[in-house]
Design a binder for these strands. Structure first.
Lengths: 243, 243
DNA sequence: CGACGTGTTGATCTCTCTCAATTAGAGTGG
DNA sequence: CCACTCTAATTGAGAGAGATCAACACGTCG
């Protein structure tokens, strides 16, 4: 098991460093690491007593579904995302978590959330920050799904994931960023059908707005995409905490 | 200003009581109360440095909008909901907050969030709980908007708001619960047009599933509504913390 | 009494869904 | 090396849920 001092997240400039005390706390609540293959489900909907995780490497997504199989992806998870705060609060997980790529998770003991708040209030604050931040991602997606056209939704999602992926790979940019979603994932994330997602993406691609190739996403015309997405502010994402 | 000891929320059996220390903390970070008339906007989208609030009485909603005016209501706020965790984390509020009824808010000082975590870790934990709980409301709504039909969305929302409203008014039930939304709010909350919302609601009403009259909601056929909503688990809402 | 907000209904229109097939690439076994 | 299978992407055709446009009803209020 990787010692926390060599946590892969610590290498990334995106993340705010821990103090020595915080590092000691994290070390004490970390139980193990977990490798999960692409497409596997880490947390099942309705599962009880799921532990807390941090996604150390790879991509995943949170989702909910209806009994007849309709599925909605709530948001995508990238390295540094903290998983399981919602279900730890109550009982059964209200959502599932499935990987998009082979992934590595840091697994925490069940009462980690309380230990964090109790022993390092600054980290407790960070947990609140991470939770609120994830909520704002869901808010954004809800705006898309509720009020944007298919074209606009796709443009919005591509820009968001491009930024998030780029923030983790400072080197990239000109040669695109990693992008492991299939069109089915995009459809499920945007409340669209697979067929319409495909047709809309082909249209955008033919207009030269973007390109997806070999698991990488290239934004060819960011201006046009941003116009479609109708995003307010912009700029690089700020540094963020992690647990 | 109402002293915290006589906070209207403390009277309600829905809420977990504070310890003396917690009460002292809340008293020390509370700045004032704010009365807001129905339809007024408490927080504007993009506003910076909005304080933290607790909704003490009344109804409100969080929303985001696009530059051409399309608006999506993210979730509805009832007494006990904590407001502003998201924007306190960064800079500009990513969403607005508008009242549905005349409302009363408890206003906290700007660094309240940090004070809470620092001085009463148990309350910091509760802040995380409240934030995660609100996220799960948005998750539910995103599932509706992304994957449910208009009928199903409306059934889901009516059930949810009925439960939440009832939890605050233990006496009610047979004579319905308070319900101050207009059809425009329902439409904006469910990603539907006003006209289609009206037609769908009339259809449900004619089938005898519900009734809305004089600002009160009556569920006439909860079984049928629940079948439409396709909700997993159920039962009374558990007690919850508040700040 | 006219203006306004809210609810209601009918008549189109269109965006998106569903159904159906085809293509391309990766992996597998013979 | 080649059939066979599976997943993901692609495209066409037709159907439908929901949007838009347009009126009208009703109650409140200044």
């Amino acid at each position: 098991m990787t010692p926390c001092e060599q946590c892969p997240l610590r290498q990334l400039p995106l993340f705010i460093p821990h103090s020595d005390d915080e590092l000691a706390l994290v070390r004490s609540i970390k139980r193990r690491e977990l490798r999960v293959a692409a497409g596997d489900t880490l947390i099942h909907e309705g599962q009880t007593d799921a532990p807390l995780y941090t996604l150390l490497d790879g991509w995943a997504f949170r989702f909910k579904s209806l009994s007849d199989g309709r599925r909605q992806i709530l948001n995508f998870l990238l390295a540094g995302d903290f998983i399981g705060v919602q279900q730890k609060m109550g009982d059964a997980a209200a959502h599932g978590v499935t990987t998009l790529t082979d992934s590595l998770f840091c697994v925490f003991q069940r009462d980690a959330l309380w230990e964090i708040h109790q022993r390092q209030p600054a980290m407790g604050f960070n947990v609140t920050w991470l939770t609120a931040h994830e909520e704002s991602l869901v808010d954004d997606n809800l705006l898309s799904v509720g009020r944007r056209s298919a074209e606009e939704r796709i443009a919005t999602l591509l820009i968001l994931l491009y930024k998030r992926s780029l923030a983790l790979h400072p080197g990239g940019g000109t040669d695109g960023v990693p992008f492991p979603l299939t069109q089915q994932h995009i459809a499920d994330g945007l409340g669209l059908s697979l067929v319409h997602t495909n047709k809309t993406m082909r249209k955008l691609e033919r207009r030269g707005l973007h390109r997806i190739r070999d698991g990488r996403l290239y934004l060819r015309d960011v201006r046009a995409l941003a116009r479609l997405a109708d995003v307010f502010g912009d700029g690089r994402p700020p540094m963020r905490p992690f647990i």
